[in-house]
Design a binder for these strands. Structure first.
Lengths: 194, 194
DNA sequence: TATTTCATGTAAGCCGTTACATGATTCT
DNA sequence: AGAATCATGTAACGGCTTACATGAAATA
């Protein structure tokens, strides 16, 4: 049982769905693809944590609607309160930041614009999710998924992160503007030391 | 050349150092370990992006002090302005968030405390880094590494992220406090829609 | 007409983690 | 006395990504 296996159980606890549905829900908040999900679903079934019912379809492979079993729920209940592992963040931005002091401002500005654009894109994406959710909840239309509360708080997190990322970019620009001679030995630490 | 290879070049552009030194600098901002670094350094040397000079040591393996070559600098200059890849974040917290609505508040509170504690730990860690940096810069003592500007902005990012994470946890608690009947269909979306 | 959506699966390869391996000195 | 620091390396394994494979219907 790896992280993603529990993630699938987590989503299945909300409602029974297919591997394809799970992929769509996951993709909003987690980098993965179908070739990682299908084998894990088969494993969950072998372990007795999930079961599926097949539905015939014309032109497409049979739909397999997975649902969580009682054993699966037991595993989920254990996992949800088990010690939280550290987040693993692999972001090229961090590695690029290491060497910015050897480049001139024009180069740094190119990088900053890319970073800011990425956060801006993220902000738009999550705002769209929020709007979609609002529409669905208000109209009480058939929900694409029932990820109401969980989805809501994760969308909020995405928005907060994007906004603070944009602020960070602007703060860096300000840092450069103030020290045109690039004398970074007199950095004002006090402002940030709570 | 994978992400981490460029990260090593990025750090080597600041100052020549050993694989062990690189590991210590990286560990503040990047999850990795020595067994990933040493083979990559050997590859960088083969490619002509880095070279090393060996230094005899008693009781320990010979120190290999790596430095970036001109070819390495060329590669670094290309990479720094090349399109920024998306960040890959693998955080169990996200997967756990999916299913919170099936649990009672007591269970969610256990999870929230773990998340908040993790952000608190991160905040303390980065504040310590900032203090260390301030001490080093003021005393002009021999710098452990010369990652002044890059380290500074990354420490700031770590602090901002930790602080907003803590605020997010408190916002979730507030959400629960306001709706003791767990009627989450009347969520106030307007407040967040800019 | 071409791409996206729906729908599931396998195979090859890369990347990273854990463990194995060694060993003196310094700190707790 | 035991753990951490300094210092480099290899081997096995697991997990994830990319590509391969199929194919109808709807959209652009």
């Amino acid at each position: 049982m790896n992280k993603l296996s529990y993630g699938l159980l987590s989503l299945l606890s909300i409602m029974p769905q297919t591997g394809y549905d799970l992929l769509l829900s996951l993709n909003r908040f987690w980098h993965t693809n179908h070739s990682a999900i299908y084998p894990l679903l088969a494993e969950l079934e072998e372990k007795g944590y999930a079961r599926y019912t097949s539905i015939d379809q014309q032109g497409k492979p049979d739909k397999k609607i997975y649902s969580i079993t009682e054993d699966g729920m037991t595993a989920l209940k254990k996992w949800i309160v088990s010690p939280l592992e550290d987040a693993v963040i692999k972001d090229e931005m961090i590695l690029k930041a290491f060497c910015i002091e050897i480049f001139d401002y024009a180069t740094v500005e190119i990088l900053l614009e890319q970073i800011e654009a990425r956060y801006q894109k993220q902000l738009e994406r999550y705002k769209k999710y929020l709007k979609d959710m609002q529409t669905n909840v208000n109209s009480k239309a058939e929900p694409i998924n029932n990820l109401i509360l969980g989805g809501y708080i994760l969308i909020q997190k995405g928005i907060i992160d994007a906004q603070s990322g944009i602020k960070w970019c602007r703060w860096i620009r300000n840092l450069y503007d103030k020290h045109e001679t690039f004398d970074f030995t007199i950095i004002d630490f006090e402002k940030i030391m709570d």
